[in-house]
Design a protein around this nucleic acid. Sequence first.
DNA 1: GCGGTCATTGGCCAACTGGCCAATGGCGGA
DNA 2: TCCGCCATTGGCCAGTTGGCCAATGACCGC
Lengths: 207, 207
Amino acid sequence: MPSPIRLLLIDDHAVMRAGLANMLNANPAFRVIAGADDGANGLALFREHRPDVTLLDVSMPGVSGIECLHLLRAEFPDARVLMLSSSDAEEDIVQALEAGACGYVTKTARPAELTAAIIAAHAGERVISPALERRLAERASGSTLTAREIEVLHLLRKGMTNPDIGRLLGISPRTAKAHVAAILEKLEATDRTEAVTRAFERGLLKV
Amino acid sequence: MPSPIRLLLIDDHAVMRAGLANMLNANPAFRVIAGADDGANGLALFREHRPDVTLLDVSMPGVSGIECLHLLRAEFPDARVLMLSSSDAEEDIVQALEAGACGYVTKTARPAELTAAIIAAHAGERVISPALERRLAERASGSTLTAREIEVLHLLRKGMTNPDIGRLLGISPRTAKAHVAAILEKLEATDRTEAVTRAFERGLLKV
DNA sequence: GCGGTCATTGGCCAACTGGCCAATGGCGGA
DNA sequence: TCCGCCATTGGCCAGTTGGCCAATGACCGC
């Protein structure tokens, strides 16, 4: 038998880490060599252990999963990272794949799917669960917010008025209004309140 | 040694269930006797196995964790249920405890905390992790929305105007406005958009 | 270099918003 | 029974909103 695939787990849920470690170590094909509860630690442990595959949780306090992925890939372009997520927000998925993740598995996946995904990731393949592909397709039909619009969106959620936004961004209230209008259209919302709701639903905004 | 505590796991995350089962079964004090991925199945399995302690995930599709808890306690008032959650939204916690949960553990808790909580729950004690108690204290200072206000909140998130809300609820736009005003004050928001954001943050609204 | 996207700004207007005042009827707990 | 909370509604007003029209300069990829 070939030597086991060496795994690094990065997830702020200690219970999940312990559970995953137990489960994966029970399979001789894998060996969990380290676990981190945060992106920064994860990065440090990666440098130290150079795992074959890293399982990275998307949502973490501090350095988020996506940020961590960016940092990791910047430093180790051939790192094999499999994103693990409890959310199926399209935004996360798209960002993860764009940032070079080898795959994206939701925690609702059956254990066998996870092990299969790990093996595939180790082999350098890209794996995405079927349910996620459907979501990606949806995405294609939807529009993407520009950086500026995202910025405005974050002010919107705080209840800022167009004049407020203008002041904060150093632009005219008119322009703020134009951005808001663009946001409304792209998110298919009738007003800023619904826009914020939809942004939460799409994962553009996080709780 | 006493006989192991018989556990039922209800969590829509199969990976988490498998991981937890592996981890807990490794401890002779516990025995995981069944796992469900959904409230309805969980209830059925409870009837069948009558576990000593049930670990119940808060957020699940279909019958939510809180609903499941209600149903479970209605049928088996002395069921020992430990809520397990990835969210630390105060609303969930409060609702869970009010619905009769023996405890509330977030998935970021260390495994030892979880096992301690299970043992405590089995003994009929109530356990809440320290971090959560702090949140509950916060809650005390905050105000609670009335049923009507919650109803209005759900319309607000959809981007409805006061006239819209009035029409839908069969009341005057003035009254809708009064409810919105009450919501704004209670959520400490300056406008409906911020109110929706805060509602998401507090767990009053779910994605 | 040209066309496309993006950020920027202007005017006009009907509608909606949130704040402030005040009042009534119902229902449940002390 | 009385108090307090809740749902209900009204008027008034300055401020904000979103829709519609149109325009400019910057930057990017083909």
